[in-house]
Simulated scan of single mutants.
Amino acid sequence: MNTISHSHHKEHQEINWSAIILFALGFWLSGSLLLDFVLIPALSASGMMINSSFASAGFLIFGVFNRIELICASLVLTCALVFAFNHNFEQRKQTLFVTFSSILLLIALSYTYLFIPNMSAWGLCLNQFSATTAMPKAMISWHEGYWILEALKYGLGITLLRWSYKMEN
């Protein structure tokens, strides 16, 4: 009786966390730039934003994108925690990396569950007989908050992207 022994010695392949974070941040930030500076201005220029159905269309567009943002933010935070566990950075930068990643996740959560539902609700045409087309003050406040968070997201995201790129090279 011959016993055939197969010993499979696969080399231990380590996950390239730097590549994952570079992809997640690159995809997320480029998608945000496309949405903020191409899609929404194009919809605005075409008159879609004053159409009564824009609130529901905006809710759908942003709702889908916000779920993608949550996935990207979760990946970024996971990578940051792996970096912290492996001590890939000095202590101060390690703490900042995890903090910035956590803030990015909080921004994505606030967009998904606070900003977009409220902005969509304010955008709904509740009184179709009203002749006013001015944006309500509350809607303006939500937009201002959104753009402040977008600026923070871009700043933190680009910082993490730079640090991850330097670590990769």
Rank of each mutant, 00 (worst) to 15 (best):
A57C: 09
S110V: 00
L60A: 13
I68F: 14
Q91F: 15
M48V: 14
N86Q: 07
L105D: 06
S53Q: 12
V38A: 00
A121P: 02
M119D: 03
A131S: 15
V98C: 09
A55Y: 11
S120K: 03
V98I: 11
W142A: 01
W17P: 04
I15D: 01
I40C: 05
G31Y: 12
C79S: 11
V38P: 01
L77H: 00
Q94C: 12
M139R: 05
L126M: 10
K93V: 14
T159R: 07
S44V: 05
T112P: 02
I148K: 06
T99W: 06
S18W: 12
A19W: 15
S32W: 10
R67M: 15
K137Y: 13
I20A: 11
L70V: 07
Q128I: 15
L75E: 04
E69I: 00
T99F: 13
L81D: 07
S53C: 08
L109S: 10
H87I: 08
F100C: 02
E90Q: 02
L43V: 12
S56Y: 13
F23I: 15
I61W: 06
C72D: 06
N127G: 05
S18C: 13
Y154R: 01
A42Q: 01
L96H: 01
Q94E: 14
R67C: 09
H143T: 07
F85D: 13
L77Y: 02
N118C: 03
V38W: 13
F37W: 05
Q128V: 14
I158Y: 12
E69M: 10
A19N: 04
Q91G: 03
L96T: 01
L106S: 11
I61R: 07
W17M: 05
F115A: 02
S44I: 10
F59S: 08
E144S: 07
W147I: 05
I107C: 04
G157A: 04
R92H: 14
A73G: 04
N88E: 15
L149S: 09
F115N: 08
